[in-house]
Each structure stands twice: as C-alpha cells, then as structure tokens.
C-alpha cells in the first residue's frame, strides 16, 4: 500500500523525461497531472509495476474546465474559446488496496487524448461517454461513437458549459 506521494516518486523515477506534476491542493485526494499523449505508457506502467499493480480503472470522467475566455454571442448565451477539457482517471489496486487519481488536460479547440483501451478494457464505454458528452477524441480507440445520445445527434456535446440545445430534433420540439 502506497500513498500518492510515493506513487508519484516512482513515476518520476521511471518517466523522468515526461512532464508530470503532483497537485496536493485538492481537498479530497492528490492528483497526478499527466501529458495526454503519454497516458497509455504511464497507464501500462501503473498496471504492471510490482509495487503498484493498478489493475482496476474505477472510473474515467470528462470535465469541462471552462477556463477559456468567455464571450456572449448575439442571443446572450455563453461562448467559451480557448482553455482546456480534462479527463480524470480513478485507479484502484485490488491487490495492494491503494488508490490514485490521474488527470490529463487537452486543448478545447482540438481535444485529443490517448486511449487507455489497451491498458484497462473498462475504458471502452467510459471513453465513448466522454466523447459523446464532451467531444474529447480518444486516439486509437477501436470504436469511438456516441453511446448515450442518438448516433445522428448534430447539436454538439451536451455537457460542455457553452452547449446550446437545438430547437428541434427530427421534427420533435426539444425545449419545454
């Protein structure tokens, strides 16, 4: 069993050339910040290392950080440009009983993150959900299509903070 600082030290030793950071300011648990293009490599290490053995991805969630510049468009609704979208990975080792949270941040305009499908098979539908609701592209995902919204939904990604719902979908009025 290891605490986040020990896990971070192990990662730092293994991946000295990759940008990693430990955020201890969060009130609940420490978060390790990772480069979105290195997450597969780091995930594999976390899963296979004898001292870590993170065999379970409990949840993968997308987040709209809404930290870009906010502007109002002509009908008064919020528009966000720039800033980041993030993906959080909550890992658990069922063998060693320790936990860690990883975070990757990617550009809002072109949100691309490596898929961890080949590390934890759980991530298949979780990544599809993050793609469906936030529009985050997971590179190398074998089947990246919408999972909750209709396949032909064209109005964008509903959980983004500047999302606007359409007036009609297939002739059905959407607003109340």
């Amino acid at each position: 069993m290891k605490n986040p600082e020990e896990i971070f030290k192990l990662l730092k030793k293994e991946f000295s050339e990759i940008i990693l950071d430990l955020d201890k300011e969060t009130p609940t648990e420490s978060i390790i910040l990772v480069d979105p293009m290195q997450i597969t490599k780091i995930g594999k290490f976390l899963r296979e290392n004898e001292e870590l053995k993170f065999d379970s991805l409990m949840v993968l969630s997308g987040v709209d950080d809404a930290n870009g510049t906010k502007t109002k468009d002509e009908d008064g609704s919020d528009m966000i440009s720039g800033g980041t979208l993030s993906v959080y990975y909550h890992l658990h080792s069922t063998v060693l009983k320790h936990k860690i949270t990883l975070k990757v941040s990617t550009q809002r305009e072109n949100p691309q993150v490596e898929s961890v499908y080949n590390v934890w098979r759980t991530s298949d539908w979780h990544e599809r959900e993050a793609f469906d609701l936030f529009g985050i592209i997971f590179l190398n995902h074998p089947d990246l299509r919408r999972i909750l919204m209709p396949y032909d939904w064209e109005a964008g990604y509903p959980l983004r903070k500047d999302y606007k719902n359409p007036e009609f979908y297939k002739g059905m009025k959407v607003p109340y």
Partner: peptide, 20 residues
C-alpha cells in the same frame, strides 16, 4: 406527461409524450 424534473435542463428528454 410534461418532462417532469427534466423540463428545463433535460437536453435529451422529450417534454411530454403527447408531442409525438
């Protein structure tokens, strides 16, 4: 009947089956 608790923020909910 009318969308219920999803009436305002339910981006995915039809607000009443009588629309269809």
């Amino acid at each position: 009947n009318c969308g219920g608790p999803y009436w305002e923020h339910g981006y995915h909910v039809l607000k009443g089956i009588d629309r269809v």
